[in-house]
Design a protein around this nucleic acid. Sequence first.
DNA 1: CAGGATCCCGCGGGATACTG
DNA 2: CAGTATCCCGCGGGATCCTG
Lengths: 101, 101
Amino acid sequence: MKKTIYQSCPIARVAMLLSDRWTMMILRDLVRKPMRFNELGESLETISTRTLTVKLKRLETLGVIRKKDACYTMTATGRKIGPIMNEMEKYGRKYLLKNVG
Amino acid sequence: MKKTIYQSCPIARVAMLLSDRWTMMILRDLVRKPMRFNELGESLETISTRTLTVKLKRLETLGVIRKKDACYTMTATGRKIGPIMNEMEKYGRKYLLKNVG
DNA sequence: CAGGATCCCGCGGGATACTG
DNA sequence: CAGTATCCCGCGGGATCCTG
């Protein structure tokens, strides 16, 4: 993707935010409730500590989450991602059941 | 991500569908209207023909899009992704403006 | 428990050239 | 135009060990 597309396309920006192996899963968890590092690690089962660290830091930098005494919570703008996650859940609940995995 | 999580978690399935560099952008285009190969290529600007081929084939296999005489269109279940894309656009329009890119 | 530091590997994906 | 075929490289991310 070109750089300039981020300025012009809202979906491109969201794509940059979400398009890696773990970010959606992390947000799925944090949208529900604040969680600590190891708690996230166990929920995500196979994520490495390194990757979890990297992804959390990135989300913090982007202003989507915040660390509050060893607990990661969504920020105000982060919580606005909720509707996206809801639609994802609705879709995933009905479709892709046999295909993926 | 573990395999078993796909059976149990709807969001994990959607994550598998969407979490790569190009799929969201392709769907962004196809949700709006059917498009041909090169048309998509120009819209996405920097995607390679190889990657576009691979991604389109994958979406076809997953039953999300269909090729209809050299034109790619969303299937019925593919069109259900619309609400996700809408929420993404709403979010991207208001947030991430300075951060990403 | 909550990470930081290294080391290393696979594969996602770009570049390029070719075909019906 | 709509791909297919190779070749190749970067980096996302796993494994492992170490620290406060």
